[in-house]
Simulated assay, not measured.
Amino acid sequence: MKKIEAILQEVGKITLKFSRLEHLALEYISVLISGVDTVDNHMIFQNDSLDKKLENLKKLIHLKSNGHREEQQLETISKIKNFKNKRNLFIHGDWGNIENAIEYDFETISVIDTKTRYNQQLDNAKNITEKGWSPQRKINFTILDLKEIQNDIDLLNSELIDHINSNRNTNK
């Protein structure tokens, strides 16, 4: 197998694992609402963005946890929120001409973060010294980088599964 094909397999695995994370967030909402995973809850929340699902989870955790592992549950939601930009990069980033990468068998893969961001530079007195829009940026990943990201997603998914099971048992 070519190096780039192995890298592309890892990118695919990351995409699948992020998809699983979103489905687990939806299942978590459902379990917090009714103690079980129901079709009704999926119908109501399935089209919400990941951000909206995470905000709903925070509210439901405060409402339903009764102090039961509330801090750990909120910490997991916080970790997912912090990881969201990486998820968006993989799902919405511009991966460019994959055919060239395959032809030349690159050892890294590049994605362009197409999100334009507003930035401000401050001096020590907190005065704005520079401001403007940051252009797109190119980010390179090796196969080891991609495997590390997968491990991070696996940990988040495991935490979600743990919280779902814990709440399934306490919210019946």
Rank of each mutant, 00 (worst) to 15 (best):
P135D: 13
Y104K: 13
I77N: 01
E130H: 09
N151Y: 09
D162H: 13
G132M: 08
G96C: 09
T15F: 07
L57H: 06
S65H: 05
R168E: 11
G93K: 02
E27N: 11
N167L: 06
H42A: 09
Q73R: 11
I153F: 03
F18M: 12
K126L: 15
Q120V: 15
E103C: 02
I109R: 01
K86I: 10
A25P: 14
E75D: 13
T76H: 04
L21E: 09
K131I: 01
L54W: 02
Y28I: 00
E10W: 01
L146H: 05
P135F: 03
S166E: 11
E70M: 13
I139M: 13
E103I: 10
K138V: 10
L57D: 04
R117M: 11
M1F: 06
L89Q: 06
L26E: 11
D113V: 02
N127C: 07
S110T: 10
G132P: 05
V31A: 04
K172N: 12
R168Y: 07
K53L: 11
N82Q: 14
I109P: 10
I143K: 15
S158A: 15
N127T: 05
I7E: 06
T76V: 09
I61E: 03
I149G: 06
D37M: 03
R20A: 15
E71N: 11
S19R: 01
E75C: 03
F45T: 07
S30F: 02
E148Y: 08
L50I: 15
F18P: 02
I161H: 07
N165C: 06
L122N: 05
T116M: 08
I80G: 03
K64P: 10
G67A: 04
G96T: 06
L60E: 09
V111E: 07
E71P: 00
I98A: 10
